[in-house]
Design a binder for these strands. Structure first.
Length: 883
RNA sequence: GCGGGGUUAGCUCAGCGGUAGAGCAUCUGCCUUACACGCAGAGGGCCGGGGGUUCGAAUCCCUCACCCCGCACCA
């Protein structure tokens, strides 16, 4: 391939879209269902079809893409299945709002026409998020994109529903559920978000029926008193024991209700010790009602209004208006004892923020415990790893206290429950396909259940339904179970736990081996991002500004598992890394005359120490990156590459190579080697970095002339033992330390780099001396010396320092030490003295010497000796200064 | 109440048994022909308090304080 120049200016917009198109066209995202090669598969957490890309999507998909690109380059047959979720309530809300803007109510439209409207909306807007994902460079296999309401996935949903029903794991029954009066549907426990809310605590007096006594109860929901069917006290409470079995009268309603004893419901210490019991509108009261055989009186309807069961004055009132009206009436009737402000936790529907109304209703439930058991075991036995592992405790805690799952929703958008009622004989049919007639009485008149399933029901099948289950398709055989799952911890219960339960039950296998639960993206103060706070970072906007690569790299480098405090200037910071990469590559191309493709293999034995050193460092980095990615430590992996590329390769290696590349040192052979190594390191670095920054690495790599047609199908670097070179590393560290020491003196004592001066080295350790011989030009260049001598004496007035085993002397132009400088010397001396004393004390401790491992003790001895030499040098600097 | 996490440099965090780290920010020099989105140098931390284990603790254990997050309760 022809090597071409890189533009001086660097703008991601010049190539991001072009490269993405080329990858997609080339089919790199689409694997064959080839069972011979080891596979790596992952399914996307399907974004809502109504979704617009936010920073959380950017994070989860960047992390998945890093894994997928890494595994693909590492030789795995890699599949990443994308798709979207029909998102029952969310989507219905969006389309309802759309219709409302056109003056249409869905109820006028009717169910079928409304469903048509939603499909139309989906066709027009549903792939918006898909386009936005592509902007980030994600390498999903778009040819396999799925939608939870696809025919295939719907078939899987019906199959699962029917089997669970037949196994008695789904039942239909009357129970108290969380009801959203705005959405007019039941919702599950996990969809209720509890929030501290300012309300009031009212104390209400209930007279006993015979008028001889009265009981005061406390409540935050006075309107529900109209539905009270008992008062409850603790059986052992002496204050009230004599009243048990008698009756009281409900103020306003006038009904007579029993006074019952219930030790579970009543806490004697709390409030007055008397509880009003409203079985129809409170979970605990509902349970108490069952225990005490109390009637249920429904006083609030599905739209949140008071029913006909309440006194006429309140009938039809909205529930919060009714609360005010009831309080006023109680006050007027003298039954209100007290009302005071009260902060308490109130359940809200997480989707629409409406206060949830507990309500008795007939719904469909999944009997969850038999499913939870195996799912708990899978994690406990380590078949599935939750990462970070601390989530396992949360998972167990939840799974062990799990409640039956209410799966029916009174919505129009979703998988309609495959159940049919025969009105003639009352028989219930549950089947994958509509029955022709009633099995029991033969009636042809069957009525399908109008409820749809909770969106999460279909999501729970996602890892296998997307692979074609219940058919044993080639994809299913090849890519299921999937390898890893990446998602936010906020849907651990909604989604992850349920996938494990369903996967176990229906495929007999765990749906994945590892679950990485990433943190949630927050703003720089750690607060949730929200439009109302105005602190959102729009991933598309920042991708436009800094490039998709910078956005991805920033997200990766923060993804340690904890929540991520993100700020725009972070993105800006890491976009500088992209620029650095670009410029270093430009430099390389200016000096390298071959391409990756036709470069000759490196003969390591011929290399100078610096070349062996940089290859050795790159090798360690490679090992670190692979190891970190295996452990989902995206932060460590990204940091390792950043550190290596910028601070070792650019800051040191390129500078060390310059004298040779610019032909100020070395012969033709060293020049060829330097060029070759420069190309090699750049090539490997680009491949190493590609999963994190796919666009810029491809753009540069193609211009360097890679063997493969794209970096994304090139091989991922792996560590090779032959590249390790501890000797080379030691030598270069030594050189770096000497150079730094000289630069330090120069900067601290105000000798501009233009002033050249002499450096003398006195060598104590002969091995190091021999190493430095041959590398003198590096010291001269990097420290900007005009000469140096090895093993020469150091003049009395030179500045001295001690580095490892080497003493250096820096001969300075005559210049007095200022008061400031001598103060600094004294401070250094003091620090060294302190450290010597600490080390000496340690070595004087007989227990330390006898118990600590030998290499620690030896290290301390060496350290002390070194420090003493250093101290001597520092003192000389102070006294030998030419005053 | 149950469970989890946090407290390390000005900020955001990593380190989790052997001499305190990164990025950003700060200060001081430099436009040294890849890069000023840069280079070089520097300053800055009793690693939340107390106790224990250990030759040795930011790292392990206990305890206290404060902060965050789940779940449950909240008449």
């Amino acid at each position: 391939m022809e090597k071409t120049e890189l533009a001086t200016r660097f703008d991601p917009k010049d190539f991001e879209e072009r490269l993405y198109d080329s990858w997609e066209k080339a089919g790199y995202f689409t694997p064959e269902a080839d069972r011979e090669r080891p596979s790596f598969s992952i399914v996307i957490p399907p974004p809502n079809v109504t979704g617009r890309l936010h920073i959380g999507h950017a994070l989860v998909n960047t992390l998945q893409d890093i894994l997928v690109r890494w595994k693909r380059m590492s030789g795995f047959n890699t599949l990443w299945v994308p798709g979207t979720d029909h998102a029952g309530i969310a989507t219905q809300m969006v389309v309802e709002r759309d219709l409302a803007a056109r003056g249409i109510d869905r109820r006028e439209l009717g169910r079928e026409a409304f469903e048509q409207e939603i499909w139309k909306w989906k066709e027009e807007h549903g792939d918006q998020i898909v386009h936005q994902l592509k902007r980030l460079g994600v390498s999903c296999d778009w040819s396999r994109i799925r939608f939870t309401l696809d025919e295939g996935l719907s078939r899987a949903v019906r199959r699962v529903f029917v089997q669970l029903f037949q196994d008695d794991l789904i039942y239909r029954g009357l129970s108290i559920v969380n009801w959203c009066p705005r959405c007019e549907t039941a919702i599950s426990d996990v969809e209720v978000e509890y929030r501290e809310t300012n309300g009031a605590l009212y104390q209400i007096r209930y007279p006993s029926s015979d008028g001889s006594a009265s009981l005061v109860v406390a409540t935050t929901r006075p309107e529900t008193m109209l539905g009270d069917t008992a008062l409850a006290v603790h059986p052992d409470d002496d204050r009230y024991r004599h009243l048990i079995g008698r009756t009281a009268r409900v103020p306003l309603a006038g009904r007579e209700i029993p006074i019952v004893a219930d030790p579970i419901l009543v806490d004697r210490e709390f409030g007055t010790g008397v509880v009003k019991v409203t079985p129809s509108h409170d979970k605990n009261d509902y349970d108490a009602g069952l225990r005490n055989d109390l009637p249920q009186l429904k006083v609030i309807d599905e739209r949140g209004r008071m029913t006909a069961a309440v006194p006429e004055a309140f009938r039809g009132m909205e529930r919060f208006e009714a609360r005010t009206a009831v309080v006023r009436a109680l006050e007027e009737g003298g039954s209100l004892v007290e009302s005071k402000p009260y902060l308490h936790s109130v359940g809200h529907h997480e989707k629409c923020d409406t206060v949830v109304e507990p309500m008795v209703s007939t719904q469909w439930f999944v009997r969850i415990e038999p499913l939870a058991g195996p799912a708990i075991d899978a994690v406990r036995k380590g078949e599935i790893a939750l990462i970070p592992q601390s989530w396992e405790a949360t998972y167990f805690n939840w799974m062990e206290n799990i409640h039956d799952w209410c799966i029916s929703r009174q919505l129009w958008w979703g998988h309609r429950i495959p159940a049919w009622y025969c009105d003639a004989c009352g028989h219930l049919h549950v089947a994958e396909d509509a029955p022709d007639g009633c099995d029991s009485c033969g009636s042809a008149e069957l009525r399908q259940e109008t409820d749809v399933l909770d969106t999460w029901f279909s999501s729970s099948l996602w890892p296998f339904s997307t692979m074609g289950w219940p058919e044993k398709t080639p994809d299913y055989e090849t890519f299921y179970p999937t390898t890893a799952l990446v998602t936010g911890w906020d849907i651990l219960f909604f989604w992850v736990a349920r996938m494990i339960m369903m996967g176990k039950r229906f495929t007999g296998q765990n749906p994945f081996e590892q679950v990485f639960l990433h943190g949630l993206v927050r703003d720089e103060k750690g607060q949730k991002m929200s439009k109302s706070k105005g602190n959102v970072i729009d991933p598309l906007e920042v991708a436009d500004e800094f490039g998709a690569d910078a956005v991805r790299f920033t997200l990766a480098i923060f993804a340690a598992g904890r929540d991520i405090p993100l700020a725009r200037n972070r993105m800006q910071g890491y976009s500088a890394f992209a620029t650095k990469l670009w410029n270093a590559s430009r430099f390389a191309m200016m000096h390298v005359d071959t391409t990756i493709e036709d470069a000759r293999p490196i003969v390591r034995e011929d290399l100078r120490p610096v070349e062996r050193w940089i290859l050795s460092r790159l090798n360690s980095t490679t090992q670190q990156v692979n190891r970190s990615l295996s452990a989902f430590r995206f932060d460590d992996a990204a940091n390792a590459i950043y550190q290596f590329f910028w601070h070792e390769f650019c800051d040191w290696y390129i500078e060390m190579a310059k004298p040779v590349l610019l032909e100020r040192a070395g012969d033709k052979k060293t020049l060829a080697q330097a060029r070759r190594v420069l190309l090699e390191v750049l090539d490997r670095s680009l491949r190493l970095l590609h999963p994190f920054m796919p666009f810029i690495t491809e753009e540069i790599w193609l211009k360097l002339g890679g063997v493969e047609p794209s970096i994304m199908v090139a091989s991922y670097p792996v560590a090779e033992e032959v590249l390790e070179d501890p000797g080379g590393e030691r030598l270069v560290v030594m050189i770096q330390q000497i150079v730094t020491a000289v630069r330090n003196v120069r900067a601290e004592r105000g000798y501009s780099p233009k002033d050249r001066f002499k450096l003398h080295l006195q060598v104590r350790d002969l091995r190091n001396a021999r190493g430095i011989k041959g590398s003198e030009y590096l010291l001269i260049e990097l420290a900007r010396l005009d000469g140096l001598e090895i093993n020469a004496g150091i003049p009395d007035n030179a500045h001295r320092d001690q580095i490892g085993g080497i003493e250096i002397g820096i001969e300075l132009p005559k210049k007095e030490i200022s008061a400031e400088e001598s103060a600094r010397f004294l401070k250094q001396i003091e620090q060294v003295e302190k450290e010597i004393e600490a080390t000496r004390a340690r070595l004087a401790d007989e227990k330390f010497v006898s118990k600590a491992p030998a290499h620690i003790v030896d290290g301390a001895r060496a350290r002390e000796a070194e420090l003493r030499q250093k101290l001597e040098k520092l003192r000389q600097n102070l006294t030998a200064s030419p005053a």
